[in-house]
Design a protein around this nucleic acid. Structure first.
Lengths: 311, 311
DNA sequence: CTGAAAGCGCTTACAG
DNA sequence: CTGAAAGCGCTTACAG
């Protein structure tokens, strides 16, 4: 089923079919012709050949999301992808995800000429405006430190504040990871706004014993701390396990709240209270930017607390 | 940088360049010419235009993996994707993942003419041989019930058997889900081979109270059961929480072993013992099949027990 | 208002 | 051994 077939069936030229099907604003087609073409296309089940179109237009109607090494199972990534996908689909584009890979594949990606290449880690850091230059040359803007998470982080801390906690510690996955540093900045600011004591921060390493040591050290060094706000759910879960290993109970001895709900917090005891993020508007916005449309909607994620047991 | 540029730079025709670059076996090119072309291509940094090539060849050198609604955070999916990606890359193809989506997009996918469309759920059920007809018409073979998981499931049960358990229950996410039924069949067979008592199976529903009820009912109805083998890690985690909520301890009162290690089992207390799957060879095999090469390597996943605390 | 033509960059019979 | 030509399916100036 090609344009040729539709043209033959409706008795016009290929060009005319193309004009009709693409609603070319520079042409004015008689209603009769238009109808004839549309009907023919429909009955023949014509679907434009994306490759041919891409060759002609210079880029294919696909947008690639490079997920890099980051986590992809949180509410942020899931909702972001959902928004991206939906908005792209609304504009007749297709979202395809490039899995995390050891090698580089700028070259391979160039070969399929995607309309744009977005990076999930940049989206998570900056609120979703990947490169929107439409050139497929995905060099991100990299305005690190912008505050896409300001609101949800405030929500996270406010939940603790509302429960009477004044001295809060921020649990981080590792020092001097850029996302951790950015989060610390945002959280400090939020704590200030909420009138809380200056935020303590500490790292919860992956090995279980080290995590336990970290929480023990926190309590020894800062006995006034009654609650922990975690960088993400895995860190929160490690904190919870440390609390357990110290013979303590959450939230009684130490409240723990996660971030970026993964769904796993629901499966444990005590169940993890966390912040569920909605980045679907960010995803939609990123899609529009990538397509060269005007960016509408928020560039920041919103969050709501999923109250379970740990805080 | 097009073929034209390389041809001009090396003083031959486009055709000759193409022959050299693609190692066309039907042509015999003089070493001198070949060298000249190769050098020119390299110095000019020529990379073939994938879209143009796809238009000419009928399909692009990309393979799409449709992840459908299934989970993607387990060791199976991760290693499968890794293998698929690596093997595809070795043959100059690119793996792109189609995120789970509410709408159908066979049509959208057709538009980019992928070399093949693979489905992760079929891979998980059948050992990785998606449709390999190379036509891009991804209607799966659907030989449900084949035993890609036979070995790892046996490994899971053997761990329990080695610990002295004779009466084991299989924890399922829900009845009459095809994967659950297939697993039950495979596990029953494995239990038989291991000389265990016939496998009990029960469902652990998502709501926490219902999960607790399910485990209570299991213990009431089958007091001889001392260990639970779970369908996957989330089910195992729910079982563990139920055990906790019943005031019991794992593994002392009831041993619990997960399946398809997600990494989350490591974060809880007691830490979840589970089976880590390696489906990288499956992924490689699926890639070869999709590319029309001869299928080498196992079509089944292998598993090793990650011993933590719960079993 | 509509059509004939060029051309996107490649591969591959076909002819020398 | 190498080159001129056709053609994959589309879009879009350009000419009527």
């Amino acid at each position: 089923m090609t344009l040729n077939d539709v043209a033959a069936a409706s008795g016009v030229s290929r060009a005319t079919v193309s004009f009709v099907l693409n609603d070319d604003p520079r042409q004015t087609i008689s209603t009769a012709t238009r109808e004839r073409v549309l009907t023919a296309a429909r009955t023949l089940g014509y679907v434009p050949h994306g490759i041919a179109r891409a060759l002609r237009e210079g880029s294919s109607r696909i947008v690639v999301l490079d997920i890099g090494p980051g986590r992809t199972d949180g509410s942020f990534a899931r909702s972001y992808v959902r928004g991206l996908d939906a908005e792209l689909a609304a504009h007749d584009h297709l979202l395809l995800v490039r899995p995390a890979t050891p090698r580089s594949d700028r070259q391979a990606l160039d070969a399929i000429a995607p309309r744009a290449v977005l990076r999930l880690d940049e989206a998570a850091a900056c609120g979703g405006d990947g490169d929107g230059d439409g050139s497929g040359d995905g060099s991100g803007v990299g305005e690190s430190g912008c505050a896409a998470h300001a609101d949800p982080v405030r929500t996270q801390l406010r939940h603790l504040a509302d429960r009477g906690h004044r001295h809060i510690a921020l649990a981080l996955p590792a020092h001097d990871l850029p996302p951790a540093e950015a989060r610390l900045r945002v959280a400090r600011e939020a704590a200030r706004q909420l009138g809380l004591a200056p935020l303590i921060s500490f790292v919860v390493p992956r090995p279980r014993a080290a995590g336990t040591d970290a929480v023990r050290a926190l309590r020894a060094g800062h006995p006034e701390v009654t609650a922990v706000a975690a960088f993400d759910d895995p860190v929160a879960l490690r904190t919870l396990t440390a609390v357990h290993d110290l013979g303590l109970t959450a939230p009684a001895d130490l409240a723990v709240i996660g971030y970026d709900d993964t769904g796993y917090g629901e499966l444990v005891a005590p169940a993890l209270t966390t912040v569920h993020l909605d980045a679907e508007p960010c995803g939609r916005r990123a899609a529009r930017t990538a397509l060269g449309l005007d960016a509408v909607g928020p560039a920041t994620a919103s969050g709501r607390v999923v109250v379970r047991e740990s805080a």
